[in-house]
């Protein structure tokens, strides 16, 4: 008798579960129909890089968020946010679930082969972070025989590999958050860490990593832009809007608000 109750309870839960799944399917269909009329821009992000893009009170905010919202508004779109692990973003893009990614994505040659990028909305320069008392690492030459950390699968990793063509130093890759990565430096597990300058500056400040500083850099500049699939018709709308926003100074304003500098120019 009791076992029977458990079975019927399980059955009810399954039915409810399936119904929930089905109803959410229905609502996604609705969303689809809204998309057609209202011009929605589906934007994906990992929301894990303050101050560029992160979540607060369940809302996606930050520099990238303001930029894409502004551009979308100008082009007559409404932004719909999807948050997912970084590794899942390109899959979502490829399968058409999102239109673009707002996640400080660098334009690389490999990515350019596969996607159409908008005009850049930020120029990022990566820097080498070192221990605060380290006065020996001032240039690429000083890295000889040292260990340098970098984020796995990032554009910075590619840059670093290009810098290290002659295998002068050892590259160690990490798949963690910026704070944990910079702590590798203060813990002495790596001699330097290669990452975007604004990211490094903000992290040192916010996470109070007093024993880490910027050693040198940037040595080169990366273009940050929004990727779209090549068959997307929205890329031109957004690109055009971004250009207009650059010209009327909105982009500069947003940059100064979030980053404290005008990162829409190389500097």
């Amino acid at each position: 008798m009791k076992l029977k109750n458990i079975w019927s309870m399980l059955l009810v839960i399954v039915v409810v579960g399936v119904l929930t799944a089905c109803s959410s399917k229905d609502s996604s269909k609705e969303r689809g129909s809204v998309k057609a009329d209202e011009k929605v821009l589906n934007v994906g992000t990992a929301a894990g890089r303050s101050p560029f893009i992160y979540q607060k009170d369940n809302k996606v905010i930050g520099y990238d968020a303001d930029i894409i919202e502004a551009a979308a508004k100008k082009a007559g779109y409404k932004v719909k946010w999807t948050t997912a692990e970084f590794e899942g973003l390109f899959g979502s893009l490829d399968s058409g679930r999102i239109d673009t990614i707002a996640n400080q994505l660098s334009v690389t040659t490999e990515r350019e082969e596969k996607y159409s990028f908008t005009v850049p909305y930020l120029y990022s320069g990566s820097v080498f972070a070192v221990k605060v008392d380290n006065e020996n690492i001032k240039s690429v030459d000083d890295l000889k025989d040292k260990v340098v950390g970098v984020g796995l699968g990032t554009a910075a990793e590619k840059e670093l590999k290009d810098i290290n063509k002659n295998n002068d130093f050892t590259i160690k890759t990490f798949s963690e958050d910026p704070t944990a990565e910079l702590k590798e430096v203060s813990l002495g597990r790596v001699d330097a860490y290669y990452n975007d300058q604004v990211q490094v500056k903000t992290t040192i400040e916010k996470a109070k990593l007093d024993d880490v500083k910027i050693g040198f850099g940037p040595t080169s500049w990366g273009n940050i832009a929004f990727p779209f699939t090549t068959d997307s018709k929205k890329v031109e709308d957004i690109s055009k809007a971004l250009e207009e926003l650059t010209n009327d100074g909105t982009l500069k304003e947003i940059s100064e608000k979030w980053l404290g500098i005008d990162a829409t120019k190389k500097q």
């Binding site: 979540q55 948050t83 899959g91 679930r97 704070t179």
Partner: peptide, 16 residues
């Protein structure tokens, strides 16, 4: 990775 923000995802975003 599929975009289902469960508890660990929210912890990550809180941390970020």
């Amino acid at each position: 990775v599929l975009g289902l923000a469960e508890i660990l995802a929210h912890a990550k975003m809180l941390a970020a």
